[in-house]
Design a binder for these strands. Structure first.
Lengths: 148, 148
DNA sequence: TTGTTAATTGATAATTATTATCATTTAAAA
DNA sequence: TTTTAAATGATAATAATTATCAATTAACAA
C-alpha cells in the first residue's frame, strides 16, 4: 500500500501542474481518495465530508472524482448496480476480493496475472490494455458471524 | 462452445418444469440467448426481434432476461456504463476479452484461473463463490483497420 | 491588499438504463 | 370452448450520474 500522504501530495501536485484550482472541498475529497480505506463510494465520501462541509454538494464529489480519474490518479471500480467504489491509493488495475455480505474490498497479492495476460494476448491476438479481476465471496469476519 | 440447440431446448425445458408459459416472444428471446453470438445486449436483442415482432416491448426483453437469469441459465456481464451483455450459451463465470473499439467479446481459454482462485482464498481467508475477469484491449480486426 | 477573471461550487434539472404498474391479451388446462 | 392466471405492451417510476447556471472563490496582477 502506497503511503497516504505521498499519494495525497502527488495528486495535489498533478492538479497544480495542470492549472486546476485548489479548493478546500477538493483537498478534502482527494485526502479520502488518497487513503482509499476500504475503497470508498461516492455516497461514502459525501457522508464523511458533510459534517465538515455542511454545504457540500454530491455534484462536487462526482466532479472531483471525475477530474482525478481523468488525470489517471484514481481507479474506478464500477459495478453494474451503480455501487461504484474508488481507489486513489493504487490507481492502476489490480485484483480485488469483495465480500458480498459486508461489501468489504481487499487487495490480494497475485503474481500469476501478468503471465495470464500474456497467454490471453497470444491466444486471442488482442492487444491487451487493461483488465478487471474481481473475486466475490464471504470474508472471514462474516463467516464467523454465521448466517443470521 | 455448447451446442446452440441443446442450450435452447435446455432452457425451454427448465421454464416448463417451473411452470412458466411458453410464448413466441419468450422463445425468440431465449433462442438468441442460447446462441449468444458476440454476447448480445438488451438493445441488440430488441433490434433483432422487432421486425418479426413489431409490437415487441423492451420491457419484455428485460423481463425474460431476468427470468432466465433467475433460473441460472444466463450469465450477465454488467458494465458500469449500463452496456450490459448476456451469455446464455456459457451461463457460468468465465474470462472475457473485450475489444474497446468494436465491443466484440471473445472467450479465451485459461487454465490457471482455478489455481488462482485457490491462492486468493488461502491468502485472504475468503470463501470465494464467484469471480469476474475481463481483459480489455484491441482485437486483431480493429488493429488491422488502424487508428482513423 | 485589493481588484479582476476564469474556474469551482451548490442547487437542481436532465438524462438514461432498468424496474414497476396496470389494463389487455393469451397460453394452458379443464 | 371456457376459464384463469400469467405474459405482454405501453408507459410511469426510480436511481445513479451528468449537465446547467447563477453565485462564489482561488489565483494572479497591480
Amino acid at each position: 500500500m502506497a503511503d497516504h500522504n505521498e499519494r495525497f501530495e502527488g495528486i495535489v501536485q498533478k492538479l497544480k501542474e495542470n492549472g486546476y484550482k485548489i479548493t478546500p472541498q477538493r483537498l478534502a475529497i482527494i485526502r479520502i481518495l488518497a487513503k482509499s480505506e476500504g475503497h470508498p463510494s461516492v455516497e461514502g465520501i459525501y457522508e464523511q465530508l458533510k459534517d465538515a462541509f455542511p454545504t457540500m454538494s454530491l455534484a462536487t464529489v462526482y466532479r472531483n472524482i471525475l477530474l482525478v480519474k481523468t488525470l489517471g490518479e484514481v481507479l474506478e471500480l464500477g459495478f453494474p448496480d451503480g455501487s461504484n467504489r474508488y481507489d486513489g491509493n493504487k490507481p492502476y488495475p489490480h485484483p480485488h476480493v469483495i465480500c458480498i455480505r459486508c461489501k468489504k474490498i481487499v487487495d490480494p497479492h497475485l503474481e500469476s496475472l501478468d503471465q495470464m495476460k500474456k497467454e490471453v494476448a497470444s491466444e486471442t491476438r488482442f492487444k491487451i490494455l487493461n483488465h478487471r479481476l474481481d473475486f466475490f465471496g464471504i470474508c472471514g469476519d462474516c463467516m464467523a458471524k454465521g448466517v443470521e
